[in-house]
Amino acid sequence: MITSFHSFGLIRRILFVLSTLCCVNSYAAEQQTTEDIFFKLKPHKCVSLHEGQQCFTKVKINWQTNIKSDYCLYSSQQRSALYCWKNTQQGNIEHELNTNADVQFVLKQSPNIVISESILKVSWVYKKKQKSRLSWRLF
């Protein structure tokens, strides 16, 4: 009985420590206002000739925050992180991609706090009417 009481106390303590860490982390994230965070894609647009075609581009992503921490960059094209940085407050990366839809890039502070996000817009010169456009481009 005494043992189980002790176990319960230990669990409570662990939970407390975890929640404190979480709050500290949240607090740290909240400390970073949007003015403090720089997150830029270049280019931020990709243009292909026909709607539905793959658009190819190499995106340069630059970011900077005011807190040293672990950060990871994610894109809507894949589940795993594109790249992670340890104990830093800035980073840059060049990422080649092809897509036929907008791509969202998200910078997250470890463990999973969204710091900033930006969208690579995909557009087309010729929208829809693929058959007409094909014959138009050809003949």
């Binding site: 000739l49 014959s135 050809l138 003949f139």
Partner: peptide, 17 residues
């Protein structure tokens, strides 16, 4: 008669007729 084909390399569209 015309035969036309397009293909894409990166964002460049080539055609031959």
């Amino acid at each position: 008669v015309w035969y036309g084909k397009t293909w894409q390399y990166q964002n460049i569209n080539f055609h031959s007729i």
